[in-house]
Design a protein around this nucleic acid. Structure first.
Lengths: 184, 184
DNA sequence: GTCTATATTCCGATAGAC
DNA sequence: GTCTATCGGAATATAGAC
Protein backbone atom coordinates (compact mmCIF):
# COMPACT_ATOMS: atom_id res chain seq x y z
CA UNK A 1 0.00 0.00 0.00
CA UNK A 2 1.60 3.22 -1.18
CA UNK A 3 1.62 6.40 0.87
CA UNK A 4 -0.95 8.14 -1.31
CA UNK A 5 -3.29 5.14 -1.32
CA UNK A 6 -3.08 5.03 2.44
CA UNK A 7 -3.86 8.72 2.77
CA UNK A 8 -6.89 8.30 0.53
CA UNK A 9 -8.23 5.36 2.51
CA UNK A 10 -7.70 7.14 5.83
CA UNK A 11 -9.49 10.23 4.62
CA UNK A 12 -12.32 8.20 3.14
CA UNK A 13 -12.68 6.40 6.45
CA UNK A 14 -13.05 9.71 8.24
CA UNK A 15 -15.54 11.01 5.67
CA UNK A 16 -17.70 7.88 5.89
CA UNK A 17 -17.87 8.25 9.65
CA UNK A 18 -18.63 11.96 9.56
CA UNK A 19 -20.86 12.43 6.51
CA UNK A 20 -21.79 8.94 5.38
CA UNK A 21 -20.80 6.97 2.29
CA UNK A 22 -23.35 8.54 -0.06
CA UNK A 23 -22.65 12.10 1.10
CA UNK A 24 -18.94 12.39 0.38
CA UNK A 25 -17.41 12.81 -3.06
CA UNK A 26 -14.09 12.31 -4.78
CA UNK A 27 -13.63 16.05 -4.48
CA UNK A 28 -13.78 15.73 -0.68
CA UNK A 29 -10.82 13.38 -0.96
CA UNK A 30 -8.84 15.16 -3.66
CA UNK A 31 -8.94 18.73 -2.30
CA UNK A 32 -7.37 18.12 1.14
CA UNK A 33 -4.69 15.94 -0.46
CA UNK A 34 -4.00 18.64 -3.06
CA UNK A 35 -4.55 16.35 -6.04
CA UNK A 36 -7.22 16.15 -8.73
CA UNK A 37 -10.10 13.72 -8.59
CA UNK A 38 -8.60 11.78 -11.52
CA UNK A 39 -5.68 10.89 -9.28
CA UNK A 40 -8.05 9.37 -6.75
CA UNK A 41 -9.80 7.44 -9.52
CA UNK A 42 -6.43 6.07 -10.59
CA UNK A 43 -6.00 4.38 -7.19
CA UNK A 44 -9.65 3.47 -6.70
CA UNK A 45 -11.51 3.34 -10.04
CA UNK A 46 -14.95 3.23 -8.49
CA UNK A 47 -16.32 4.54 -5.23
CA UNK A 48 -17.18 0.99 -4.23
CA UNK A 49 -13.50 0.05 -4.56
CA UNK A 50 -12.68 2.78 -2.11
CA UNK A 51 -15.42 1.71 0.25
CA UNK A 52 -14.18 -1.86 0.24
CA UNK A 53 -10.63 -0.72 0.98
CA UNK A 54 -11.89 1.29 3.96
CA UNK A 55 -13.71 -1.70 5.42
CA UNK A 56 -10.72 -3.93 4.77
CA UNK A 57 -8.40 -1.53 6.58
CA UNK A 58 -10.78 -1.38 9.52
CA UNK A 59 -10.81 -5.17 9.72
CA UNK A 60 -7.01 -5.28 9.61
CA UNK A 61 -6.86 -2.77 12.44
CA UNK A 62 -9.33 -4.82 14.42
CA UNK A 63 -7.47 -8.09 13.91
CA UNK A 64 -4.22 -6.42 14.86
CA UNK A 65 -5.76 -5.01 18.03
CA UNK A 66 -7.34 -8.23 19.25
CA UNK A 67 -4.05 -9.99 18.67
CA UNK A 68 -2.26 -7.44 20.87
CA UNK A 69 -4.88 -7.95 23.57
CA UNK A 70 -5.09 -11.70 23.50
CA UNK A 71 -2.97 -12.38 26.58
CA UNK A 72 -5.00 -10.00 28.77
CA UNK A 73 -7.87 -11.02 31.04
CA UNK A 74 -11.17 -11.01 29.16
CA UNK A 75 -12.61 -8.01 30.97
CA UNK A 76 -9.57 -5.96 30.04
CA UNK A 77 -9.80 -7.08 26.44
CA UNK A 78 -13.38 -5.88 26.30
CA UNK A 79 -12.44 -2.63 28.04
CA UNK A 80 -9.92 -2.01 25.29
CA UNK A 81 -12.63 -2.42 22.68
CA UNK A 82 -14.81 0.05 24.55
CA UNK A 83 -11.92 2.45 24.58
CA UNK A 84 -11.60 2.29 20.81
CA UNK A 85 -15.24 3.31 20.55
CA UNK A 86 -14.85 5.99 23.20
CA UNK A 87 -12.04 7.60 21.24
CA UNK A 88 -14.17 7.55 18.11
CA UNK A 89 -16.96 9.16 20.07
CA UNK A 90 -14.86 12.07 21.24
CA UNK A 91 -13.47 12.49 17.72
CA UNK A 92 -17.04 13.00 16.52
CA UNK A 93 -17.05 9.71 14.62
CA UNK A 94 -19.62 6.98 14.46
CA UNK A 95 -18.41 3.44 13.88
CA UNK A 96 -18.11 2.07 10.37
CA UNK A 97 -20.98 -0.35 10.81
CA UNK A 98 -23.20 2.35 12.26
CA UNK A 99 -22.56 4.51 9.23
CA UNK A 100 -22.74 1.84 6.52
CA UNK A 101 -25.64 -0.29 7.78
CA UNK A 102 -28.31 2.35 7.03
CA UNK A 103 -26.88 2.74 3.51
CA UNK A 104 -26.59 -1.02 3.02
CA UNK A 105 -29.33 -1.28 0.39
CA UNK A 106 -27.65 1.37 -1.77
CA UNK A 107 -24.25 -0.37 -1.84
CA UNK A 108 -22.82 -2.79 -4.39
CA UNK A 109 -22.99 -6.51 -3.55
CA UNK A 110 -19.19 -6.80 -3.15
CA UNK A 111 -19.24 -4.00 -0.61
CA UNK A 112 -22.21 -5.55 1.17
CA UNK A 113 -20.23 -8.78 1.41
CA UNK A 114 -17.28 -7.02 3.01
CA UNK A 115 -19.61 -5.45 5.56
CA UNK A 116 -21.03 -8.88 6.31
CA UNK A 117 -17.51 -10.15 6.93
CA UNK A 118 -16.79 -7.27 9.28
CA UNK A 119 -19.97 -7.91 11.28
CA UNK A 120 -19.20 -11.58 11.54
CA UNK A 121 -15.65 -10.98 12.74
CA UNK A 122 -16.71 -8.61 15.51
CA UNK A 123 -19.55 -10.82 16.70
CA UNK A 124 -17.29 -13.85 16.73
CA UNK A 125 -14.60 -12.13 18.76
CA UNK A 126 -16.95 -10.56 21.34
CA UNK A 127 -18.76 -13.87 21.72
CA UNK A 128 -15.54 -15.71 22.47
CA UNK A 129 -14.36 -13.06 24.93
CA UNK A 130 -17.67 -13.15 26.81
CA UNK A 131 -17.77 -16.94 26.83
CA UNK A 132 -14.22 -17.28 28.13
CA UNK A 133 -14.70 -14.41 30.55
CA UNK A 134 -17.74 -16.06 32.04
CA UNK A 135 -15.84 -19.30 32.48
CA UNK A 136 -13.12 -17.34 34.27
CA UNK A 137 -15.68 -15.62 36.51
CA UNK A 138 -14.70 -12.26 35.10
CA UNK A 139 -18.11 -11.74 33.52
CA UNK A 140 -21.54 -12.61 34.85
CA UNK A 141 -24.55 -12.62 32.57
CA UNK A 142 -27.61 -14.64 31.69
CA UNK A 143 -28.32 -16.31 28.38
CA UNK A 144 -25.93 -17.36 25.64
CA UNK A 145 -22.64 -15.59 25.00
CA UNK A 146 -23.72 -15.08 21.39
CA UNK A 147 -26.89 -13.22 22.33
CA UNK A 148 -25.02 -11.18 24.92
CA UNK A 149 -22.39 -10.29 22.32
CA UNK A 150 -25.09 -8.92 20.06
CA UNK A 151 -26.35 -6.76 22.91
CA UNK A 152 -22.88 -5.43 23.66
CA UNK A 153 -22.12 -4.65 20.04
CA UNK A 154 -25.47 -3.04 19.43
CA UNK A 155 -24.97 -0.81 22.46
CA UNK A 156 -21.50 0.23 21.37
CA UNK A 157 -22.75 1.00 17.89
CA UNK A 158 -25.82 2.95 18.88
CA UNK A 159 -24.15 4.83 21.68
CA UNK A 160 -22.05 6.57 19.04
CA UNK A 161 -25.16 7.42 17.05
CA UNK A 162 -27.00 8.73 20.09
CA UNK A 163 -23.91 10.62 21.21
CA UNK A 164 -23.89 12.50 17.93
CA UNK A 165 -27.42 13.74 18.61
CA UNK A 166 -27.43 14.00 22.39
CA UNK A 167 -23.80 14.66 23.23
CA UNK A 168 -20.76 12.50 24.07
CA UNK A 169 -21.72 11.98 27.72
CA UNK A 170 -24.43 9.71 26.33
CA UNK A 171 -21.73 7.30 25.26
CA UNK A 172 -20.17 7.30 28.73
CA UNK A 173 -23.49 6.66 30.45
CA UNK A 174 -24.27 3.69 28.21
CA UNK A 175 -20.84 2.10 28.29
CA UNK A 176 -20.45 2.50 32.05
CA UNK A 177 -23.77 0.82 32.74
CA UNK A 178 -23.03 -1.90 30.20
CA UNK A 179 -19.68 -2.82 31.75
CA UNK A 180 -21.22 -2.72 35.22
CA UNK A 181 -23.94 -5.14 34.15
CA UNK A 182 -21.36 -7.63 32.94
CA UNK A 183 -19.30 -7.35 36.11
CA UNK A 184 -21.99 -8.52 38.54
CA UNK B 1 -52.63 17.84 5.78
CA UNK B 2 -53.92 17.10 2.28
CA UNK B 3 -54.01 13.62 0.81
CA UNK B 4 -51.11 14.26 -1.56
CA UNK B 5 -48.96 15.82 1.15
CA UNK B 6 -49.59 12.80 3.32
CA UNK B 7 -48.65 10.40 0.54
CA UNK B 8 -45.43 12.30 -0.04
CA UNK B 9 -44.47 12.24 3.63
CA UNK B 10 -45.25 8.53 3.96
CA UNK B 11 -43.17 7.68 0.94
CA UNK B 12 -40.31 9.88 2.09
CA UNK B 13 -40.40 8.15 5.46
CA UNK B 14 -40.07 4.79 3.76
CA UNK B 15 -37.23 6.02 1.54
CA UNK B 16 -35.29 7.47 4.45
CA UNK B 17 -35.51 4.17 6.27
CA UNK B 18 -34.54 2.10 3.23
CA UNK B 19 -31.95 4.21 1.39
CA UNK B 20 -31.12 7.05 3.75
CA UNK B 21 -31.87 10.77 3.55
CA UNK B 22 -29.01 11.66 1.22
CA UNK B 23 -29.60 8.75 -1.15
CA UNK B 24 -33.20 9.38 -2.20
CA UNK B 25 -34.33 12.05 -4.62
CA UNK B 26 -37.46 13.96 -5.52
CA UNK B 27 -37.74 11.62 -8.49
CA UNK B 28 -38.03 8.66 -6.09
CA UNK B 29 -41.07 10.40 -4.62
CA UNK B 30 -42.62 11.73 -7.80
CA UNK B 31 -42.48 8.59 -9.97
CA UNK B 32 -44.46 6.20 -7.72
CA UNK B 33 -47.06 8.90 -7.10
CA UNK B 34 -47.29 9.54 -10.84
CA UNK B 35 -46.57 13.24 -10.58
CA UNK B 36 -43.63 15.40 -11.62
CA UNK B 37 -40.92 16.50 -9.24
CA UNK B 38 -42.19 20.10 -9.46
CA UNK B 39 -45.39 18.94 -7.77
CA UNK B 40 -43.41 17.59 -4.85
CA UNK B 41 -41.48 20.86 -4.62
CA UNK B 42 -44.80 22.71 -4.45
CA UNK B 43 -45.68 20.90 -1.22
CA UNK B 44 -42.15 20.81 0.21
CA UNK B 45 -39.95 23.50 -1.34
CA UNK B 46 -36.69 22.09 -0.02
CA UNK B 47 -35.64 18.59 0.88
CA UNK B 48 -35.09 19.72 4.45
CA UNK B 49 -38.75 20.76 4.64
CA UNK B 50 -39.68 17.24 3.67
CA UNK B 51 -37.28 15.73 6.16
CA UNK B 52 -38.71 17.84 8.97
CA UNK B 53 -42.24 16.79 8.04
CA UNK B 54 -41.22 13.14 8.19
CA UNK B 55 -39.73 13.52 11.66
CA UNK B 56 -42.75 15.49 12.81
CA UNK B 57 -45.12 12.78 11.59
CA UNK B 58 -43.08 10.12 13.36
CA UNK B 59 -43.27 12.10 16.59
CA UNK B 60 -47.03 12.47 16.22
CA UNK B 61 -47.37 8.73 15.69
CA UNK B 62 -45.25 8.11 18.74
CA UNK B 63 -47.22 10.47 20.96
CA UNK B 64 -50.45 8.94 19.73
CA UNK B 65 -49.20 5.44 20.50
CA UNK B 66 -47.95 6.15 24.01
CA UNK B 67 -51.25 7.80 24.77
CA UNK B 68 -53.11 4.68 23.69
CA UNK B 69 -50.84 2.57 25.89
CA UNK B 70 -50.84 4.73 28.97
CA UNK B 71 -53.34 2.70 31.00
CA UNK B 72 -51.43 -0.55 30.47
CA UNK B 73 -48.89 -2.03 32.89
CA UNK B 74 -45.43 -0.69 32.20
CA UNK B 75 -44.01 -3.94 30.89
CA UNK B 76 -46.80 -4.17 28.36
CA UNK B 77 -46.24 -0.56 27.32
CA UNK B 78 -42.60 -1.34 26.63
CA UNK B 79 -43.54 -4.54 24.82
CA UNK B 80 -45.70 -2.47 22.49
CA UNK B 81 -42.75 -0.25 21.69
CA UNK B 82 -40.65 -3.32 20.94
CA UNK B 83 -43.40 -4.52 18.66
CA UNK B 84 -43.29 -1.30 16.65
CA UNK B 85 -39.60 -1.87 16.08
CA UNK B 86 -40.12 -5.54 15.29
CA UNK B 87 -42.60 -4.68 12.57
CA UNK B 88 -40.14 -2.19 11.11
CA UNK B 89 -37.49 -4.88 11.17
CA UNK B 90 -39.54 -7.36 9.20
CA UNK B 91 -40.51 -4.62 6.75
CA UNK B 92 -36.80 -4.10 6.05
CA UNK B 93 -36.77 -0.70 7.71
CA UNK B 94 -34.37 0.82 10.15
CA UNK B 95 -35.71 3.37 12.62
CA UNK B 96 -35.71 7.05 11.77
CA UNK B 97 -33.04 7.88 14.34
CA UNK B 98 -30.84 5.04 13.15
CA UNK B 99 -31.02 6.36 9.61
CA UNK B 100 -30.70 10.07 10.33
CA UNK B 101 -28.08 10.06 13.09
CA UNK B 102 -25.18 9.04 10.79
CA UNK B 103 -26.20 11.81 8.37
CA UNK B 104 -26.66 14.35 11.17
CA UNK B 105 -23.67 16.50 10.19
CA UNK B 106 -24.95 16.88 6.63
CA UNK B 107 -28.40 18.12 7.65
CA UNK B 108 -29.67 21.66 8.08
CA UNK B 109 -29.81 23.05 11.64
CA UNK B 110 -33.65 23.12 11.68
CA UNK B 111 -33.71 19.44 10.78
CA UNK B 112 -31.06 18.67 13.39
CA UNK B 113 -33.23 20.42 15.97
CA UNK B 114 -36.23 18.28 15.08
CA UNK B 115 -34.11 15.16 15.47
CA UNK B 116 -32.98 16.39 18.86
CA UNK B 117 -36.61 16.80 19.88
CA UNK B 118 -37.41 13.28 18.74
CA UNK B 119 -34.53 11.81 20.70
CA UNK B 120 -35.52 13.70 23.81
CA UNK B 121 -39.15 12.58 23.58
CA UNK B 122 -38.27 8.90 23.27
CA UNK B 123 -35.71 8.98 26.06
CA UNK B 124 -38.12 10.79 28.33
CA UNK B 125 -40.91 8.30 27.73
CA UNK B 126 -38.77 5.16 28.14
CA UNK B 127 -37.21 6.61 31.28
CA UNK B 128 -40.62 7.21 32.85
CA UNK B 129 -41.89 3.76 31.90
CA UNK B 130 -38.82 2.07 33.38
CA UNK B 131 -38.95 4.17 36.53
CA UNK B 132 -42.64 3.50 37.13
CA UNK B 133 -42.24 -0.13 36.15
CA UNK B 134 -39.50 -0.62 38.70
CA UNK B 135 -41.64 0.96 41.39
CA UNK B 136 -44.42 -1.46 40.48
CA UNK B 137 -42.03 -4.42 40.58
CA UNK B 138 -42.64 -5.10 36.92
CA UNK B 139 -39.06 -4.30 35.99
CA UNK B 140 -35.84 -5.10 37.82
CA UNK B 141 -32.62 -3.39 36.90
CA UNK B 142 -29.60 -1.71 38.41
CA UNK B 143 -28.63 1.92 38.01
CA UNK B 144 -30.76 4.91 37.12
CA UNK B 145 -33.84 4.64 34.95
CA UNK B 146 -32.34 7.26 32.65
CA UNK B 147 -29.19 5.25 31.98
CA UNK B 148 -31.23 2.09 31.52
CA UNK B 149 -33.49 3.89 29.07
CA UNK B 150 -30.47 4.83 26.98
CA UNK B 151 -29.41 1.18 26.91
CA UNK B 152 -32.86 0.02 25.84
CA UNK B 153 -33.16 2.62 23.12
CA UNK B 154 -29.68 2.01 21.82
CA UNK B 155 -30.39 -1.71 21.61
CA UNK B 156 -33.65 -1.20 19.74
CA UNK B 157 -31.97 1.17 17.34
CA UNK B 158 -28.92 -0.92 16.61
CA UNK B 159 -30.77 -4.19 16.42
CA UNK B 160 -32.48 -2.87 13.29
CA UNK B 161 -29.12 -1.88 11.84
CA UNK B 162 -27.55 -5.23 12.64
CA UNK B 163 -30.63 -7.03 11.36
CA UNK B 164 -30.17 -5.39 8.00
CA UNK B 165 -26.68 -6.85 7.74
CA UNK B 166 -27.06 -10.12 9.63
CA UNK B 167 -30.72 -10.96 9.12
CA UNK B 168 -33.96 -10.28 11.02
CA UNK B 169 -33.43 -13.04 13.59
CA UNK B 170 -30.73 -10.79 14.99
CA UNK B 171 -33.44 -8.39 16.09
CA UNK B 172 -35.36 -11.15 17.84
CA UNK B 173 -32.30 -12.40 19.71
CA UNK B 174 -31.45 -8.95 20.99
CA UNK B 175 -34.97 -7.92 21.97
CA UNK B 176 -35.75 -11.21 23.67
CA UNK B 177 -32.63 -11.04 25.81
CA UNK B 178 -33.24 -7.39 26.57
CA UNK B 179 -36.78 -7.94 27.83
CA UNK B 180 -35.64 -10.95 29.83
CA UNK B 181 -32.96 -8.86 31.52
CA UNK B 182 -35.53 -6.33 32.62
CA UNK B 183 -37.90 -8.98 33.94
CA UNK B 184 -35.60 -10.50 36.51
C1' DG C 1 -51.95 22.06 -7.80
C1' DT C 2 -49.74 20.20 -11.50
C1' DC C 3 -47.52 20.75 -15.64
C1' DT C 4 -43.31 21.70 -19.11
C1' DA C 5 -39.07 23.42 -19.37
C1' DT C 6 -34.92 24.76 -17.74
C1' DA C 7 -31.20 26.74 -14.74
C1' DT C 8 -27.47 25.32 -11.97
C1' DT C 9 -24.59 22.55 -9.75
C1' DC C 10 -22.40 18.51 -8.69
C1' DC C 11 -21.20 13.78 -9.19
C1' DG C 12 -18.72 9.46 -10.75
C1' DA C 13 -15.97 8.16 -14.28
C1' DT C 14 -12.83 8.13 -18.52
C1' DA C 15 -9.48 9.64 -22.39
C1' DG C 16 -5.28 11.09 -23.45
C1' DA C 17 -1.15 14.24 -22.66
C1' DC C 18 2.81 14.61 -19.74
C1' DG D 1 0.94 8.72 -11.18
C1' DT D 2 -0.90 12.96 -11.92
C1' DC D 3 -2.60 16.21 -14.93
C1' DT D 4 -6.34 18.75 -18.09
C1' DA D 5 -10.49 18.29 -20.12
C1' DT D 6 -14.74 16.44 -20.68
C1' DC D 7 -18.68 13.17 -20.98
C1' DG D 8 -23.07 11.71 -19.38
C1' DG D 9 -26.11 11.80 -15.96
C1' DA D 10 -28.63 13.03 -11.92
C1' DA D 11 -29.70 16.13 -8.27
C1' DT D 12 -32.17 20.29 -6.13
C1' DA D 13 -34.70 23.93 -7.28
C1' DT D 14 -37.37 27.63 -9.90
C1' DA D 15 -40.21 30.19 -13.61
C1' DG D 16 -44.20 30.48 -15.86
C1' DA D 17 -48.18 28.29 -18.48
C1' DC D 18 -52.43 25.85 -17.63
Amino acid sequence: MTVMKDKIVSLADKLIRIKGFNAFSYKDIADPLAVKNAAVHYHFPSKADLGIAVVKEEMDRFQHNVQRWQELPEDEQLAHLFDVFRRHCYAGNVCLMGSLAPDYETLTPPMQDKINDMAEAIVEWVTAVLENGRNNKRFHFKGSAGDRALLVISNLQSSLLLARVMGPETFDRISRQLLEDLRS
